[in-house]
């Protein structure tokens, strides 16, 4: 082993956020929650071996007790079972909507960032117009055309999130394209395709994982909102937003009908956000 180390030339001090840092308390909790939710979505019967749609008119409106951890609703259905089985809906909708939004966003963002000034200008104006349909409005427009329902709600949420992703991806792409290492690759004799595939795309898409994690939380909330407003899943489907909608009428008498589905929505959104940000921090300081 030859070759001497350079003297008097210190490497930077170890950074506070190295890639393999021990997770903080909040991150651990969020990760555990996320695992639980995934488990609930994949194996709902394992966690709640009951029938989410099974009614029991005599046992209606029970407050949380030993047999019914989260209480029962107006038809006597066990809320815990319904919440667990509802995870499937929410997660699938969230993932699907995010996938739709991300794909559209990647397409639009890449078109804008890679194909020259004219295309960039056009796509930018298009995005600007889409932003003039803030948030739910685009989704509502979609629903007006295609009618309410779970599928429509999912696609609607996906389309509403696409402009946001497109803008971020475009900005990232433009930033990476201008970086010094892309030029250095040209000097080394790489073709444009090689540079695109080996340098530009990996560096652009790397932050997408974080975006997707944050986005799934957001998408679940929006889909639940649409259901809550009566435009998504409809009762008696065991979907969180629909359950909240049904529980609205009984808010004063049976608060648990609204509380637990709502709690799960919030926990999902928060843990997705915490996880997303911690992954982001790790990747940035890697």
């Amino acid at each position: 082993m030859s070759g001497l180390e350079v003297q008097a030339d210190r490497a930077p001090r170890s950074r506070p956020f190295s890639r393999h840092r021990r997770p903080r308390a909040a991150e651990t909790i969020a990760a555990v929650l996320a695992l639980f939710l995934v488990l609930a979505a994949v194996l709902p019967d394992f966690l709640a071996p009951g029938d989410p749609l099974g009614i029991d008119p005599l046992g209606a409106f029970q407050s949380p007790n030993f047999t019914h951890a989260f209480g029962t609703d107006e038809s006597g259905r066990d809320i815990y079972t319904r919440v667990v089985h509802g995870t499937q809906y929410s997660l699938v909708i969230g993932v699907a909507a995010t996938a739709i939004g991300l794909s559209l966003g990647i397409v639009l963002g890449t078109l804008a960032g890679m194909l020259g000034r004219i295309v960039d200008f056009t796509v930018n104006r298009f995005l600007e117009v889409l932003f003039a349909f803030p948030g739910l409005l685009l989704a509502l427009l979609f629903i007006v055309i295609f009618g309410p329902g779970v599928a429509t709600a999912t696609i609607a949420v996906g389309i509403s999130t696409a402009p946001g992703y497109a803008r971020i991806i475009r900005a990232q792409l433009i930033s990476v394209r201008g970086k010094s290492f892309v030029e250095a690759a040209t000097v080394l004799g790489r073709t444009r395709w090689q540079i695109l595939l080996r340098h530009i795309l990996p560096n652009t898409l790397a932050p997408l994982f974080v975006l997707a994690t944050l986005g799934i939380g957001q998408a679940i909330v929006w889909a639940a909102t649409l259901s809550y407003l009566g435009l998504g899943a409809e009762p008696p489907t065991a979907e969180w937003g629909a359950m909240l909608s049904a529980g609205r009428t009984y808010i004063t008498s049976a608060w648990w009908m609204s509380f637990f589905p709502g709690l799960f929505i919030v926990l999902t959104a928060v843990s997705a956000t915490v996880l997303g940000r911690s992954i982001d921090k790790r990747m940035r300081h890697a």
């Binding site: 010094s180 290492f181 030029e183 250095a184 000097v187 080394l188 004799g189 340098h199 990996p202 560096n203």
Partner: peptide, 22 residues
């Protein structure tokens, strides 16, 4: 030109920026 690029190399002021961060 690409075929000739091996003959011309470059060293940059910002060495860190000239490397792919990944």
């Amino acid at each position: 030109r690409r075929g000739l690029r091996a003959s011309v190399g470059a060293i940059y002021q910002d060495a860190l920026g000239s490397f792919d961060p990944r």
